[in-house]
Amino acid sequence: EVTIKANLIFANGSTQTAEFKGTFEKATSEAYAYADTSKKDNGEYTVDVADKGYTLNIKFAG
């Protein structure tokens, strides 16, 4: 089991951190699914992958 950390960075400057656990593939998939659901309210996003994929910096356009 691994933990994927997602740092969500919103257009207004606020941030949120979420953690997803499971296999690398499952946790990563859940992090992207979470970003997709947040996209409806926060606009399109880009992802900067860090820490060999264990940290995702997800920046929303607003």
Rank of each mutant, 00 (worst) to 15 (best):
E1V: 14
E1T: 11
E1W: 14
V2E: 05
V2M: 05
V2N: 04
V2K: 05
V2H: 07
T3C: 12
T3L: 09
T3A: 06
T3N: 06
T3H: 06
T3S: 08
T3F: 06
T3I: 13
I4Y: 00
I4L: 06
I4C: 01
I4K: 00
I4N: 00
I4G: 01
K5M: 09
K5D: 02
K5L: 10
K5Y: 09
K5V: 15
A6R: 01
A6M: 14
A6G: 03
A6Q: 02
A6H: 00
A6W: 01
N7Y: 11
N7L: 11
N7R: 11
N7G: 01
N7K: 09
N7A: 05
N7W: 06
N7T: 12
L8Q: 01
L8Y: 13
I9H: 10
I9R: 07
I9Q: 08
I9F: 14
I9E: 07
I9Y: 13
I9V: 10
F10M: 08
F10W: 07
F10V: 03
F10A: 03
F10T: 03
F10Q: 04
F10D: 02
F10R: 03
F10N: 03
F10L: 08
A11T: 08
A11M: 09
A11K: 10
A11P: 14
A11Y: 07
A11H: 09
N12D: 15
N12P: 03
N12R: 04
N12E: 05
N12Y: 05
N12V: 04
N12F: 05
N12M: 04
G13V: 03
G13K: 06
G13R: 05
G13E: 04
G13F: 05
G13P: 00
G13I: 03
S14T: 15
S14I: 14
S14Y: 13
S14E: 13
S14R: 13
T15F: 12
T15W: 10
T15L: 10
T15E: 07
T15R: 12
T15Y: 11
Q16N: 09
Q16E: 14
Q16Y: 13
Q16C: 14
Q16A: 12
Q16G: 07
Q16K: 12
Q16W: 10
T17V: 11
T17I: 11
T17K: 09
T17A: 08
T17D: 05
T17W: 09
T17Y: 12
T17M: 10
A18L: 15
A18T: 11
A18F: 14
A18S: 09
A18Q: 13
A18Y: 14
A18V: 15
E19K: 08
E19L: 13
E19V: 12
E19M: 12
E19I: 14
E19N: 08
E19P: 02
E19T: 12
F20M: 02
F20R: 00
F20N: 00
F20L: 02
F20K: 01
K21F: 13
K21M: 09
K21I: 12
K21R: 14
G22Y: 01
G22V: 02
G22T: 01
G22A: 05
T23K: 06
T23Q: 07
T23F: 07
T23L: 08
T23C: 07
F24K: 08
F24I: 09
F24Y: 13
F24V: 07
F24A: 05
F24P: 05
F24L: 10
E25H: 08
E25P: 06
E25A: 11
E25Q: 11
E25G: 07
E25T: 09
E25D: 12
E25F: 07
K26L: 09
K26S: 14
K26W: 12
K26P: 01
K26Q: 13
K26A: 13
A27S: 04
A27T: 03
A27R: 00
A27K: 00
T28E: 06
T28P: 00
T28Y: 13
T28A: 06
T28K: 08
S29T: 11
S29D: 10
S29Q: 15
S29W: 11
S29N: 12
S29H: 11
S29M: 14
S29A: 15
S29R: 14
E30N: 09
E30V: 05
E30R: 08
E30H: 07
A31V: 07
A31F: 02
A31C: 08
A31H: 01
A31I: 06
A31P: 00
A31R: 00
Y32T: 04
Y32H: 06
Y32R: 06
A33C: 09
A33E: 11
A33P: 01
A33L: 11
A33D: 09
A33Q: 11
Y34V: 05
Y34E: 03
Y34R: 04
Y34K: 04
Y34M: 09
Y34N: 03
Y34S: 04
Y34F: 14
A35Y: 02
A35I: 10
A35Q: 01
A35H: 01
A35K: 00
A35N: 01
D36A: 07
D36G: 05
D36N: 11
D36T: 06
D36Y: 05
D36K: 05
D36P: 00
D36L: 06
D36Q: 08
D36W: 04
T37K: 15
T37G: 13
T37Y: 14
T37W: 14
T37P: 03
T37A: 15
T37E: 15
T37I: 14
T37S: 15
S38I: 15
S38K: 15
S38W: 15
S38V: 15
S38C: 15
S38F: 15
S38E: 14
S38R: 15
S38D: 04
S38L: 15
K39F: 09
K39N: 06
K39C: 10
K39L: 07
K39I: 12
K39W: 06
K39T: 10
K40E: 12
K40V: 12
K40R: 12
K40D: 10
K40F: 10
K40S: 11
K40Y: 10
K40N: 10
K40L: 12
D41W: 14
D41K: 12
D41R: 10
D41I: 14
N42F: 15
N42R: 08
N42I: 05
N42H: 15
N42Q: 11
N42E: 10
G43S: 05
G43T: 04
G43A: 05
G43D: 05
G43Q: 05
G43M: 06
G43W: 05
G43R: 03
E44Q: 10
E44N: 11
E44A: 11
E44P: 14
E44H: 10
Y45Q: 00
Y45H: 02
Y45W: 08
Y45A: 02
Y45K: 02
T46H: 09
T46P: 00
T46N: 07
T46F: 09
T46L: 08
T46V: 12
V47Y: 04
V47L: 06
V47W: 04
V47P: 00
V47G: 01
D48W: 10
D48I: 13
D48C: 14
D48R: 08
D48H: 12
V49W: 10
V49N: 05
V49M: 08
V49P: 06
V49E: 07
A50H: 10
A50R: 12
A50L: 14
A50T: 13
A50K: 11
D51G: 04
D51T: 01
D51R: 02
D51N: 08
K52E: 15
K52M: 14
K52S: 14
K52G: 15
K52F: 15
K52N: 15
K52I: 05
K52A: 14
G53R: 02
G53E: 04
G53N: 03
G53D: 03
G53A: 03
G53L: 02
G53I: 02
Y54C: 08
Y54Q: 06
Y54G: 05
Y54S: 05
Y54K: 07
Y54R: 07
Y54D: 03
Y54H: 10
Y54A: 05
T55M: 06
T55N: 04
T55G: 02
T55K: 04
T55F: 05
T55D: 03
T55Q: 07
T55W: 04
L56P: 02
L56A: 01
L56G: 01
N57V: 10
N57C: 07
N57S: 05
N57M: 07
I58D: 01
I58K: 00
I58F: 15
I58E: 01
I58Q: 01
I58G: 00
I58N: 00
K59D: 05
K59G: 05
K59E: 07
K59S: 11
K59T: 14
F60W: 05
F60K: 00
F60R: 00
F60T: 00
A61V: 14
A61C: 13
A61H: 14
A61G: 13
A61S: 13
A61Q: 13
A61L: 15
A61R: 11
A61F: 14
G62P: 10
G62W: 07
G62M: 07
G62F: 08
G62D: 10
G62L: 07
G62Y: 08
G62T: 09
G62H: 08
